[in-house]
Design a protein around this nucleic acid. Sequence first.
RNA 1: GGUCCUGUGGCCGAGUGGUUAGGCUCAGCUCUGCAAAAGCUGCUACUCCAGUUCGAACCUGGACGGGACCUCCA
Length: 487
Amino acid sequence: MEKLFIYNTLSRTKEEFKVINAPFLGMYVCGPTVYSDVHLGNCRTFMSFDLIYRYLIHLGYKVRYVRNVTDAGHLEGDRDEGDDKFAKKAKLMQLEPMEIVQKYTVGFRDIMALLNNLPPSIEPTATGHIIEQQEITKQIIKNGLAYEHNGNVYFDVEKYAKSNNYTVLTNRKLEELLENTRELEGQDDKKGRLDFALWIKAKPEHLMKWPSPWGVGFPGWHIECSAMSTKYLGEQFDIHGGGMDLQATHHTNEIAQNIAYCGKSPANYWLHTNMLTVNGQKMSKSLGNSFLPMELFTGSHPLLAKGFSPMAVRFFMMQTHYRSTLDFSNDALTASEKAYNRLMDSYKVLQSIKASPKSGENVAALERACYEAMNDDFNTPVLIAHLFEAIRMINSAHDKKTALSQADIDLLHKIYQHFVFDVMGLKKEEETGKASTALESVMQLVLELRDKAKANKDFATSDEIRNKLTAANIQVKDGKEGVTWSI
RNA sequence: GGUCCUGUGGCCGAGUGGUUAGGCUCAGCUCUGCAAAAGCUGCUACUCCAGUUCGAACCUGGACGGGACCUCCA
């Protein structure tokens, strides 16, 4: 198996990846909160982990990939006050909370499918694991690291920090954290400023609430991930991931909960994906530069010059490493769209290449380079750079400027299948479905007429046909071995 | 304000103490009836200042810009 190196937030270095129980591999990723349309930044995170999932599968691991759906208990601002996000919106729209959840869960899955993300092995919901969350909370209380007050249960961070490194993920100093945390406001049953809720007492107006040993309430935000990762992947598993915004608070608290619960840190490797910006600025609602995935696909947003297909967007995201910030701009998207089209066109060309007895290219070295790029912390930008070398080989061979043996042609097929389709999860965009067979025959007829005109040196007619087709978004290319066209 | 991360050519983006990233754009050439496509060639960078070094864009310190978290926004 390939030697894989992964950047681990715990050590802040690239480490050689060792699996606890190969070939089985557990991976947990913090999923979306389904109270509104999925944020494009979340899409990038899930696409990054989709790439990782796909590559691990490609390497031969039997991966159980768990990504939760947060459908309850996620308080605004992670403060232990205020309305539950779902209940708030539900009241506003006169809908049941689960109706909201259903609507946005379905919407989320649609977008994920459009972007060709593989579904995770399990997508557990927070509301489906209330009992499990309560059990963990009970055990943490029993272990002396959480306390109940007025129907709320809080995690005792300072007590925990006495015998554990609370800030493993961020390297921050606990004293500094304590100094910098905001003053506590209003109702507060917490002993320490950094304490966070495991269970929250429900106000009468709350719609989503459950009975518990501490009264009627709902779970704190962080406990669901501890409960569900433990249930489906065990007390210790291989990879835990999420966006960088979750690192300091959510993941820090998650580790604390797991250690307080069973004495074990949940994951060996913590992976964090970077954020997304628009024209160099953070994507945020208050700045008005925030657009939805569907708006990106259709181009229906003032900041977008046009729509970009899901696969062009996927390719665009793959051109940036997952730990770098990704900047959205029309220019960058347009450039990627063209590059993606070249990648796909070249695959079409590959189908028609004729083998030569000898090869003028080192395709095996290229394949190795592709693996090495991926083994270096899933470096897709470098992988793509190598794939453009493959494109050069294919196009040159097609133009008879270089030669490829049958073995090399087969290997190029394999490279495309493995890296472009299986690992990066790119695919040919759908061609207009049923209409395409009809269109195919019409185009054949039109191009035959044009060929006749050309044979008669009637270039006026042949150019007119080509120009009108170009205007209709159909590109005609006169190659050495006949005419081809593409939309 | 505090802590952490980051700053690469016209644009986007990898990477490394001394050797071509790659894509897009632009220019030239080849091919072509002309185009388009493709191939080749060129333009060639590392925010600024100081230091370490035989040598730094890559290491160290400082300045300035951007981002994340701490505060509603993924």
